[in-house]
Nucleic acid binder design. Sequence first.
RNA 1: CGGGGUGUAGUUCAGUCCGGCAGAAUGCCUGCUUUGGGAGCAGGAGGUCGUAGGUUCAAAUCCUGCCACCCCGACCA
Length: 507
Amino acid sequence: MLPLVIIQTSYQTYEMADKITSRSADYAQWYTDLVLQSGLAEYSPVRGSMVIKPHGWAIWEEMKSILDKKFKETGHVNASFPLLIPKSFLEQEEGHAEGFAKECAVVTHYRLKTDPDNKGKLMVDPDSQLEEELIIRPTSETIIWNCYKNWIQSYRDLPILINQWANVMRWEMRTRLFLRTSEFHWQEGHTAHATSEEAIAETEQMLHVYADFMETYMAIPVIKGIKTPGERFAGAVETYCVEALMQDGKALQMGTSHFLGQNFAKAFDVTFLTRDNKSEYAWATSWGVSTRMMGALIMVHSDDDGLVLPPKLAPLQVVIVPIFRNEEQLEQIRQKANGIISALKSQGISVKLDDNDQYKPGWKFAEYELKGVPVRLAMGMRDLENGTVEIARRDTKEKSTVDLEGVEDRIIALLETIQHDMYEKALQFRADSTHRVDDWDTFVATLEEKGGFIEAHWDGTEATEQKIKELTKATIRCIPLEGDMTPGKCVYSGAPSQRRVLFAKAY
RNA sequence: CGGGGUGUAGUUCAGUCCGGCAGAAUGCCUGCUUUGGGAGCAGGAGGUCGUAGGUUCAAAUCCUGCCACCCCGACCA
């Protein structure tokens, strides 16, 4: 039997795209239009869940492979734990149980049968009710720590540094493509350590791994910080996070890393014997980033013409559009293009020639801009005669005609320039959108008129945090790890404050 | 779960008020002409009008139930 050959088609599905709503007209609609029309994802028949289409999944795969490498470089290994979690496991850790109870999908039966009263229809077989309900994992701490109980007896078994790539489910009231869906894909690291210090170091290390990935590869500047008790992960002692600012001035939490203390070890009775033969509970961390990062990638960089992808995450980095009238001309262009393609591929650049003759060049230009391909080359007979090629960059839409000779080096340099410029542009936007505020009226006015991050003093109480949220819908995104440490007075209550924290309206 | 809205061609929607042959655009198929910023013309295929019932000579249209989805508010990576 012949092997089945699957041809990669994510850039070959041509459809006429409708107009994307402009960002200035309706930012939320722009986002939805862009996700749908650039072919990243579409709605599924089930409310709250989405289909991630090849182009969207290809970007996620780029993210995964880079992160996976970083996890392994820092000593982690991958494993896979079950999708279904016994309800009793979830009950073990009190804070955790309370935090997730309201958004769990529950499996109660294991069988269907044909409905005797309704031909051709299926019904849940009442005889198949489960003794104990199973929860579709909203996160995996409980089932993993149930395993760790058996894996950990001695300090010699520690640390355990495991990551899993998985899908999880949290039953959401209101959903948005990539940003909040009931089912989402992520990675969750779950580590066990002999000491508190080591666990905290792990938590911080992974936060830095995330931040480095987001800044270097996603070209998104992030603020590293810790969450207030009110915003902390259910079951954590301390939650670290990375926060980014979107083009509409709203913040997005891009990842979290939790120091779980001994909460889960105690809940699941995970003890080990130390070198001096004393029994101790293990120390834990967990950390995750999800397909939500796709939303950040879109909202930080893209424009009214479509996606703008940083070269380091673009599944296709360079596209060559030939301009031709007949097959002979195409063949001539193809020969020149093949030289460029092989030179670029040898440098690890992904590139393709779009020689489809069903669409005019103008159509292809618009299409690749919509899909976010960082660099586009156009080659026609005029170029062949002159020994030139037209080169266009997606982020600025600048076009220039350059000598064909040495164009490969120019492209490689341009990809680096684009990556760099995208980060700088986002950094500048964030700087322009970060406001230092010291009084309540300005605080409210700034949120209403400008949005963005607000650096302000907070008295440290949950009551004040809640009140500010009620009045302005802004939340404390984090207490930044770096930054201004000078004391002052709370912007709301006037009570003493040790330092400024970061406020914003958030997704 | 409260308030509002929508279910008609692959998609977006008109038609519903006032019952009377199932429509448009776009996409799809075929052919010819085009090709340096989303091409033009000609022909063609495509529907159980969400679903179940009721009223009527006649229902996409009126009435009732059910279902689904979307938008706005209370929870969240």
